[in-house]
Design a protein around this nucleic acid. Sequence first.
DNA 1: CTTTAGCACTCTCTACTAGAGAGTGCTAAG
DNA 2: CTTAGCACTCTCTAGTAGAGAGTGCTAAAG
Lengths: 373, 373
Amino acid sequence: MSAGLTERRQAILKLVIQEFVETACPVASETLVRKYRLNVSPATVRNELAALEELGYLTHLHTSAGRVPTDAGYRFFVENLMERTALPLAEQRTIRHQFYQVRGELDQWIQLAGAVLARTTQNASLVTPPRSAEPLRFRSLELIAIHDTMALAVLVFHGGIVKQQTVTLDAVRSAEELRRAAARLSDYLADQTLSGIEETLARPPEQQTLMLSDFERGLVEMLVRAMQTFEEQSREQIHSDGLIEMLSQPEFIPALVREDAERAVERLRRALEILKSGRGLGTLIPQVLASDGVQVIIGGENSADEMREYSVVLARYGVENAIAGVLGVIGPTRMAYPRSISTVRYISSLMSDLLAELYNVESRISEGEALEE
Amino acid sequence: MSAGLTERRQAILKLVIQEFVETACPVASETLVRKYRLNVSPATVRNELAALEELGYLTHLHTSAGRVPTDAGYRFFVENLMERTALPLAEQRTIRHQFYQVRGELDQWIQLAGAVLARTTQNASLVTPPRSAEPLRFRSLELIAIHDTMALAVLVFHGGIVKQQTVTLDAVRSAEELRRAAARLSDYLADQTLSGIEETLARPPEQQTLMLSDFERGLVEMLVRAMQTFEEQSREQIHSDGLIEMLSQPEFIPALVREDAERAVERLRRALEILKSGRGLGTLIPQVLASDGVQVIIGGENSADEMREYSVVLARYGVENAIAGVLGVIGPTRMAYPRSISTVRYISSLMSDLLAELYNVESRISEGEALEE
DNA sequence: CTTTAGCACTCTCTACTAGAGAGTGCTAAG
DNA sequence: CTTAGCACTCTCTAGTAGAGAGTGCTAAAG
């Protein structure tokens, strides 16, 4: 047929996608004409739809069932047709207020970000904790007595990263003993990375600048172990939320999708595995960490077969040259991309602001409008 | 007809339940005879099945489809027919070893407990963090410098409960300033509950034993807020895991359950809500906290309609008179109760041991067989 | 060359029917 | 009390027909 993506065809493509995203039903030529009051006949639309199909932006499930967008169709929509709106101000305000309620607690920010993303997009969300690209660099150790024989070790790393770990002691230790041991070790190992610490410890006795007591040696071992597991964990950790929200999408309701019903469950299992373990996301997270702006991955565009039915909208958040994480939304390819994108953009910039505040100077403990712009 | 649960009927009931739990298919008289080599004819079994049905332990979906246990049937099985085996030693060892790997970290224990419960029972698990029945009682505050204007506040409460919170400071403070402020507040507020602290602060100036600086006042506000949210949160918090495992149960695979397929999704949504928010569990958690041993709640026995299709196996864990939580398994009423019960029993006693170690004297930091019996 | 009306064609969905299969419940004999 | 035999019930499957939806094509109109 005739080549070229004329204006009118683009307009029709846009309508098809909007309609399909809204209703989840294949869209027919007549529906378009009626619902959007087009000044042409269904037959004309049909011709255009056929052209769009030939161009690869739409498909047919079978002869005679409306058109459905392909991945390429969504891609074109996201790239060229979509209006880039920001999240409504009222909604922004509500969200900001919720974050304000839990100020000072990174874990809660992460959880809240996930919840908000899920709720406003009606899809599942994922958030990775912010992390420095650098290896962990030890800064100081504090030991806080909790019991006679139990203490809390608080490991502080450069970049404001903190890890706590309970330690059972080999004997009753006074607070003073704890303080001294912590100070000695903080001094001894300050500013070193995990491998640096291991090197220091491996030096022959005559090169050691400090003789460690058995107690202190035990603490260092704990420290090393904690750093190891911490680095491993934070590399992979993904928080997710919004399963229930995503489950309310018609794709997961067998009766609505006229379809195997088996596939609905299979689809769900896949989503669960992606959300739980990140399997299927492949190298996406590092990629997003290395790029700016909101990234949209539609269907099987970028990764394994497992993701073929899902789209992902991700963005980096964090503080330049210090710390960064990824957050975003995952759901069926039939997704309200404009809304997802604007939500992800807003939440990521909000999280970035919050983190920046933690890292900067102007904020204060004494309440107030810390989070207002 | 004839009344009474004869030996033989009990034996048959047991077989029906075992068979149904294994296969998820209604069990027929002939199947029983063939598979278990009964020395009676199918007709005899049929008579017994009819009697068991009249007694309320079995049902019929329709004339001519095998028997299915009722809630009462499961209940009788759990109470009287089931062998109470312990978890195989090899499995115990594996589990113990996994816990040993993450010694010292309560959060990880909780997560691990959930994962192990889910994996060994092939159902979903839930774990509430251990908590004291008493209100939080403040013990001490530590402030650890992280940045120029950022510190980590570590709040230590009686019972070894610890909460960390990031604090942004109103000005640059030296480590010494932080230390002194923390020490003063620790002293001032030591051993008080939340309401006690609020009272202390509300006293008129002339009764105050300590003049607080603005900085210290800000810290106290943070402290109060943290205690409030902490108490609220820990009251409701439920960790869950094993959705994927539970999803592999035939109840969630519409093609296997000859059934609406709609219901499978609805069922799943319910499970999700229960696991996420604890809704539907009602007063179950407090009840279990107040009782010893493993509690089994079958179907709608104890609570709302939402739980009608699920059974729950729960147990308390913790340290007598100090701290306690609840952990357990949730899944379709067609559940391998013996296995669930023995797993829950084992994990709860393991968690109790681990917590007891944290609270007691004999353990040591220096590696070794801390977790072996 | 584009648009449109008309119409045949394709494919799904629903309802209906019939027959096979599974398993029970009943009856009557051992 | 047990059991063989058999009728009965209910599900499941397959097949058929008709309605409905929507397209693709053709030919005429603008």
